[in-house]
Design a protein around this nucleic acid. Sequence first.
DNA 1: CTAATCCCTAGAGTCAACTCTAAGTCAACC
DNA 2: GGTTGACTTAGAGTTGACTCTAGGGATTAG
Lengths: 138, 138
Amino acid sequence: MKTYTIGEAAKALNLTPYTLRYYDKEGLLPFVERTSGGTRFFKESDLDALRIIECLKMTGMPIKEIKTFIDWCSDGDATLQERFNMFQERKAAVEAQMQELMQTMRVIEHKCEYYQAALDAGTEAIHHDKQIAKALAH
Amino acid sequence: MKTYTIGEAAKALNLTPYTLRYYDKEGLLPFVERTSGGTRFFKESDLDALRIIECLKMTGMPIKEIKTFIDWCSDGDATLQERFNMFQERKAAVEAQMQELMQTMRVIEHKCEYYQAALDAGTEAIHHDKQIAKALAH
DNA sequence: CTAATCCCTAGAGTCAACTCTAAGTCAACC
DNA sequence: GGTTGACTTAGAGTTGACTCTAGGGATTAG
């Protein structure tokens, strides 16, 4: 079964070796094994686990909370409920983020139209207010 | 026309007075006026401008780039094209974020199902692999 | 066998975005 | 007019997540 050095794993995940060592130091990678010489080697399943970690980061979860989850994983079936709850919370967090992003998108699109019209007219004055704050607010 | 103290403005925007002073120090609020005594007062249009700033932050834009935009606003019509381009880029950034978030959502939902099944069975063993990394990766 | 290029650790440094402290000023109420 | 509480500044401190340095050790190519 193919394994990866820290540099190869970093490249595969689009991270740096520094970041992977940092994650390991923070306790996120208890499953990564070492050679007798002390060099880490990453298995395919380790990369998959790291992809989950990256996914949790995407939801805005801080490293310390991800560590709690990893610890639960090590603790086995006794923590199934906690882990389920955590993913339910992550799901709610992502849904909230998507709502916020959609609201943001509406504002940005409105601004695109605002500036398109201003460009066509050659001046922002068509939007009737030259005060910076008011122009920004439109 | 109603105006707001820094504390009132902060409350209205769900920020702290510290944050508003920090934004001002970074040059994001050149439009906020002061009383003769030096106290800031925020107009309704200033709050609207701050809502745009918060919107830009939501897109992942750093404070320094937001400052560039505010400077363009102060520069008038000569910078209309730059501002239009910036909003187009922000739109693309939000679209990319939404794609990423949807991908994240798929993974999270899969994990919710995984843990629901494990809870129903009373053990994660139904997913055939007790190694932490592999269980994480499923 | 040696040079190059990875790997290791501990710990320091960086960066963004706040967040707070200290020392003082201003405004409203009693 | 004095107390209270919110305002002001400059500048220091915090937090999270890296990112790098120094000083070594291991592994591969010639």
